[in-house]
Amino acid sequence: MEREKVITAKGLTKRFGDFTAVDAISFEVGKGEIFGFLGANGAGKTTAIRMLCGLSIPTDGEATVAGFDVYRQTEQIKRNIGYMSQKFSLYNDLTVRENIRFFAGIYGKSHQFIKENTERLLDRLHLQAESNKQVKSLPLGWKQKLAFSVAIFHEPDIVFLDEPTGGVDPVTRREFWNMIYEAAESGITVFVTTHYMDEAEYCNRVSIMVDGRIDALGTPQDLKQQFKAESMDNVFLKLARKATRGE
């Protein structure tokens, strides 16, 4: 099935002085796809994501996100994406409701939309009882689920998740991935980085970054065949061992 392309990158590069953090990466992501963006620490995943989100200006190459150019149309890109960073970045001193309201508000959503969808979201996350508590009082797993929900609350085309499940227990991780599937089914493209190779198996396609380059790209099935490995874990280890960059 040929999907409509929502992210394209061609030779996308980012250099900091002499150091090439991202080295001419090229890939395409289709609409509604769950695209896993793997790599060891320091491989350049976060830098790549930051370029695609319009937070960082590429040094070279080209890329479009949701049909907009990453050099000139960053503000249009921002209107059409959601972003959840490694750091928890909701406001700890605001309540669950206030956080949802604030972020929906600055994306320009109407009061009517915010009101209806807030209740639906709180029900789905079973957070009704905690909705007027400050976010800092929630356990980490709940915070992450809330952060993800807030990142897609304004109904973006694409959501970028940078290690969303770091430090979260296996049960919550499972629940989190169910939420990702739901989002993908509703048409949101999911671009996710992770360290957990079991999570890589959940993705439609994965790319593996080593030392700033994409060394492998395909469905988990294809990659396992290509590298003659029985699990994604082994694929990753075979590739990551070649890395020359330290942690």
């Binding site: 989100c53 319009g54 937070l55 503000e75 921002k78 209107r79 994406i81 972003y83 960073s85 750091k87 928890f88 970045s89 909701l90 406001y91 700890n92 972020f103 600055i106 994306y107 320009g108």
Partner: peptide, 12 residues
Amino acid sequence: IGTMEQINVTPI
């Protein structure tokens, strides 16, 4: 705390 980055990816 990282909320700045979150603000920077919004169309604010």
